[in-house]
């Protein structure tokens, strides 16, 4: 699950952090975290804006991905799992959107993270889109769930950057709650 060092071609626009894109199919409850880990597939990695758009343009459109799949864009070195040391004290904002609203919001969410628009220091770990039947869930994971000032700042930035409809629900969940 490592694609080796990131390449930075001359002339391309370097990102603050390199990121990895992962894909997974939701395992059944019975498989637990081991099943989840095995279900994760590393799709690609990006270190520059140009590499991001090249990867993005090769991705299947969100509306065409079957239900119960997750796409995860995480900083290189952080696995998109609760158990990763960067995540175990963390949490996530979850936004529920109708399917037709999700594509643009996901694109905005990725751009906001890659462009360091959250002003949250090194708190951001990654973002996830989860496909369901009628709705899609967007999540942004941060390192420290107990840091209320930062989680509030991330929430406010999400509202500003994603153009999400006022009707969309947002809730914060700690990973610890999810593990219980």
């Amino acid at each position: 699950s490592d694609l080796g060092p990131i390449e930075y071609p001359p002339g391309e626009h370097r990102l603050q952090h390199p990121y990895c894109l992962w894909f997974s199919k939701r395992p059944s409850q019975i498989q637990g975290s081991q099943g989840y880990s095995q279900a994760l597939r590393l799709v690609g990695q990006v270190g520059t804006v140009e590499q991001w758009w090249a990867l993005y343009s090769h991705m299947v459109r969100l509306q065409d991905i079957p239900a119960h799949r997750d796409l995860h864009l995480f900083k290189k070195g952080i696995k998109p799992m609760w158990e990763d040391s960067a995540n175990k004290k963390g949490g996530k904002w979850v936004i529920r959107l109708r399917k037709e609203q999700a594509g643009k919001a996901w694109e905005n969410l990725c751009m906001a993270m890659l462009g360091e628009q959250f002003m949250a220091g090194n708190e951001i770990c990654g973002v996830v889109v989860s496909t369901r039947y009628q709705e899609y869930l967007l999540s942004i994971w941060n390192r420290t769930a107990s840091d209320q000032a930062t989680t509030a700042r991330i929430r406010d930035a999400l509202k500003r950057l994603l153009n999400i409809p006022p009707s969309a629900t947002m809730e914060y969940k700690t990973h610890n709650d999810c593990l219980k």
């Binding site: 626009h13 603050q16 804006v49 140009e50 905005n108 751009m111 462009g115 360091e116 628009q117 950057l161």
Partner: peptide, 21 residues
């Protein structure tokens, strides 16, 4: 050090540049 910050419009412009095709 300085953070590398990109706004949405800047990223969108690079999306359509020939080098990212």
């Amino acid at each position: 050090g300085t953070r590398i910050v990109y706004e949405k419009n800047f990223l969108m412009n690079l999306r359509n540049s020939p080098s990212s095709k």
